[in-house]
Nucleic acid binder design. Structure first.
Lengths: 216, 216
DNA sequence: ACACGTATATTCGTAGACGAGTAAAGCGGA
DNA sequence: TCCGCTTTACTCGTCTACGAATATACGTGT
């Protein structure tokens, strides 16, 4: 139930949504997506576009509806969305909206090994992160206000609103962790510090590090 | 500045953290990680472990320190972390903590094409999502309480706390969007609905859909 | 004592992502 | 008019993640 999609790359979703309005050739898809800022939303690798379109054609989500030649330019193949493609777009969207998939943000991976850094450094780095987060939040907010002024309806901006909300939540969480660390309220802070000062892992921690190996 | 890491797979980070305490062979790494619940934190593909360890050895982050044979079992190669490996672990952790990388959650992709569904269905699906999110939140909270009772220090559970906080933020955001949609306060709801009822895209939207193509 | 499930331990083939490369056409300025 | 930069448009080869397969050993119920 995980990845039964014929074409799993999310770029394919963007392509379907783009060709939905009218047939176009591949480079135009790229331009349209870029113009709509899709390249910001998802991290689109343009090198994958051609492969993805090809695969989608193979699976019947797109079809070739002719070619076009402007001047002596290379011939451009025009693709249109098929009925199956429309169904795939709708069905995929349904799934993406209704089923939360646990994502694994890189930050979480970092946090899971945070103990390898001394607490002082952890604090400094978290502050650095927080600064950068706040900057992003500012940018995002400004961008959202701008597009709003331009008359783009909110319906086409929800993903950005969501992104902004998540950034804010992350900043808030980081702030609260920092508070605990700087105020010394974080439990076990002393042990953590001691470990890095003596260079030796206290029994308390060594035990934890081995946990799961014992047959309990 | 994006991916200069010799071994980019985050599984490599987990491996470094695991072998940090003592040398071990590959299957044992897998067992230890599983026992510590790493497989829950990050989505580990065990098929990649062998490749990753091999690459890390090639790049000098790990080294072979001998072999071991228990009974007639196949010979097991024992790997230890090198100084370079320790440096990589610390340096990578620093980066993961201090530099927020904009992630591209699948949900955001879904939201960006939400308009292909009629508002009624969008509401239903969001409610479904919310239900599932709340379930996850309950599970996570319970798991966290359990591990806390077992005496595992918070330092080794922060990634889970972070995950929980993000789940909660997402649920809160979904709830507020749902409120706007069900109460009718969401601007443009009528146009959206009309489009799906008539099957025809109102000019207002068609224009938006084409935006970016005009040379403004 | 044997059969069957589970844990141990690793190899391999391949689909597909993506960087980097290619090349012509348009365009702006000097 | 000609040089060089940007845009248009696409191809190709590499590299790696990962699923799936493999094979042996161990334990345990009958």
């Amino acid at each position: 139930m995980v990845e039964k999609r014929k074409v799993g790359n999310l770029l394919a979703l963007a392509v379907l949504a783009t060709v939905y309005t009218r047939p176009m050739h591949r480079y135009e898809m790229a331009s349209v997506m870029r113009a709509r800022g899709k390249d910001q939303d998802m991290d689109v690798k343009w090198g994958s576009l051609y492969t993805v379109v090809q695969n989608m054609t193979k699976h019947g989500f797109l079809e070739v509806v002719g070619t076009d030649r402007a001047g002596a330019r290379p011939e451009r193949t025009i693709y249109a969305i098929t009925e199956a493609g429309k169904r795939e777009l709708v069905d995929w969207t349904r799934e993406l909206i209704s089923v939360p998939r646990t994502e694994h943000p890189r930050f979480a991976a970092g946090l899971s090994v945070l103990a390898v850094l001394p607490p002082r450094e952890a604090i400094a780095l978290l502050q650095e992160r927080l600064g950068r987060l706040e900057e992003s939040i500012g940018d995002q907010r400004a961008a959202l206000a701008r597009t709003g002024d331009e008359g783009i309806p909110r319906l086409f901006l929800i993903e950005n609103e969501y992104g902004l909300a998540m950034l804010e939540a992350e900043a808030a969480w980081s702030r609260s962790l920092l508070d605990e660390l700087t105020s010394g309220a974080f439990p076990g802070l002393d042990v953590w510090q001691a470990w890095h000062q003596t260079g030796e892992m206290p029994d308390e921690m060594a035990e934890i590090a081995e946990r799961g190996l014992s047959p309990d």
